[in-house]
């Protein structure tokens, strides 16, 4: 049996003892895929990503990478095994410069810094011009570029993105989705949480709808976009109007 690249299996996790936020949800990500996760606010989307990435203790269930159990492994180990993560909020080191942020991206492999920086700056030309600017003084959209750039510095095989387009202007959102596609085309599998459900599902191979810590719906991006129930409950009538 060929297992997908990254598997989260029946995860139960939470922040406070006795309160489970994730209640048995799971997800799979195949090599080279783009997978989207949508769902209402507070559904546990960010929590799922954090649990998969070792930033939050998993109570039961397992996370497997290339078939190997990595449940509750520390994040820095997952980074060295080829996972990159961009958090929803506070996604840059605000007091560090752009270049230092990227440098921290290759903390585990400092020798590769120059080569990877050139790659990232080609993807996000803006960063090349801002090398010495403090990340904290950048706009939300610019930070998102830097955050993705930082996560790409280790040449990950999997990229976990938590709402990369949140709070960005339409033009910047277009950029983000275009970049995500571009990154994916270089062979990086992408696991993406999004509020902008329509846009997300349009570029995704598959999608998950999360609700109250469980999987409500699963399907290809196309199926979910046209599923009456999903539209009704999660995409909203705006989506139907199109």
């Amino acid at each position: 049996m060929d297992e997908p690249l990254l598997v989260a299996d029946e995860l139960v996790a939470g922040y406070v003892t006795g309160v489970d936020i994730l209640r048995g949800c799971g997800a799979e990500l195949g090599a080279g895929e783009i997978v989207g996760v949508i769902g209402p606010n507070g559904a546990g989307k960010s929590t799922l990503v954090k649990a998969m990435f070792g930033l939050l203790r998993v109570r039961t269930g397992s996370v497997r990478l290339r078939g190997a159990d990595v449940t509750n492994r520390p994040a820095h180990e997952l980074v060295s095994r080829g996972i990159g993560y961009v958090p929803q909020r506070q996604n840059v080191f605000a007091t560090l410069t752009v270049e230092e942020n990227l440098r921290m991206g290759t903390y585990l492999r400092p020798r590769r810094f120059t080569e990877r920086r050139d790659f990232v700056e080609e993807l996000f030309p803006l960063l090349a011009k801002r090398r010495n600017q403090k990340a904290g003084s950048m706009s939300g959209g610019e930070r998102q570029m830097l955050a993705m750039g930082r996560a790409l510095m280790m040449e990950p095989e999997v990229l976990l993105l938590d709402e990369p387009s949140a709070g960005l202007s339409p033009a910047y959102q277009d950029q983000v989705f275009a970049r995500v596609k571009e990154i994916n085309s270089t062979g990086v599998a992408i696991f993406m949480v999004e509020q902008n459900a329509r846009r997300c599902l349009q570029i995704c191979d598959r999608g998950y709808v999360l609700d109250q810590g469980t999987n409500a719906y699963t399907g290809t991006g196309h199926q979910l976009l046209h599923d009456e129930k999903v539209i009704e409950l999660y995409l909203g009538t705006l989506a139907r109007a199109r």
């Binding site: 820095h76 996604n91 840059v92 080191f93 605000a94 007091t95 230092e100 440098r103 903390y107 400092p110």
Partner: peptide, 24 residues
């Protein structure tokens, strides 16, 4: 230095430091 930048990175954002592969 690398460790010095990591110290500043950690002071700036602990979770992100961990997410960057820094052994906090």
């Amino acid at each position: 230095t690398r460790i010095g930048t990591a110290i500043r990175a950690l002071s700036s954002n602990r979770d992100l430091a961990e997410a960057s592969g820094i052994d906090v």
